[in-house]
Design a protein around this nucleic acid. Sequence first.
DNA 1: CGAATTTCCATTGACACCCATAAAATCCCA
DNA 2: TGGGATTTTATGGGTGTCAATGGAAATTCG
Lengths: 152, 152
Amino acid sequence: MSTYVNKVDRKGRVSVPATFRTALADQNFDGIVAFPSLDYDALEATGIDTMEAISAGLNALEQPAEQQGLATLILARSLRLPFDPEGRIVLPEKLAAHAHITESAAFVGLGSTFQIWEPDRFAAHEAALLERTRREGMRMPSLGSLASRPRS
Amino acid sequence: MSTYVNKVDRKGRVSVPATFRTALADQNFDGIVAFPSLDYDALEATGIDTMEAISAGLNALEQPAEQQGLATLILARSLRLPFDPEGRIVLPEKLAAHAHITESAAFVGLGSTFQIWEPDRFAAHEAALLERTRREGMRMPSLGSLASRPRS
DNA sequence: CGAATTTCCATTGACACCCATAAAATCCCA
DNA sequence: TGGGATTTTATGGGTGTCAATGGAAATTCG
């Protein structure tokens, strides 16, 4: 949840917001896993647990073919980014380039995952979302309506 | 339910009305979650539980795309505001600015959620609501008719 | 042995906790 | 049931701690 903007230093290091770090603290790998978003010029990221779940799903035979393709794609392009003692990661050139990140990065928490954006691009994305939401005449609903609804 | 006006001190702290606090007491996070309202110059707030439900909804595949956009928007702009030992939160600059809150804040209970307004703006909002209701010739119905009706 | 990467230290500034006081609501008992 | 006693709130301020950031030292690897 929420978004934090942190600086990328000359060596390509960024602090992962402490909130996110503690959320991942109990996982098997002390760091994050990131891969280029398929939808945006941004990075998708999570803890290793989510990735292991995906990889487990890949092995499951019942999985539809499209889902398998998607999972393969994601796994193949994912990078493990370990924390340094201060809780920073280094953004590999490839990932930074995909998201056009140079001097600072916006960490956008989405619940169990988060995204990493170049701050200006994220602002634009946010504005677009807001605009679209307005245009579609969506009002602030009772928040509950956004929750996943149990099928009746 | 009901509205309370509390002061914002020099450090940006405000007491969350005790009533609201006790209502959230049994949740996983000792504090509130707030985000800028899409409709007003005010903040929307709830307990963490509601947000977790939204985040769960975001991951649910069955969710329509527009709802996903809305959920993303809300999650990205939400901030976790923990209680200090006295039951206060600090209003981050960003949120305070959106609601034009400077020296005091009105907490408006709405049932499972509440809003936070700059008191004068809330008074105006309230007056406008009243005015509109009158103009539309609405009378106080039996309160029961306002309750949510079970789907037939 | 040189380049890159990772650990180690140091600084600053924000934030969380501690305590202290005043006002208000609640309790309690004669 | 009135009013004093007690317990909660709300509010202010000081201060220690941790997160974010930068740079140097050290280690790794080709």
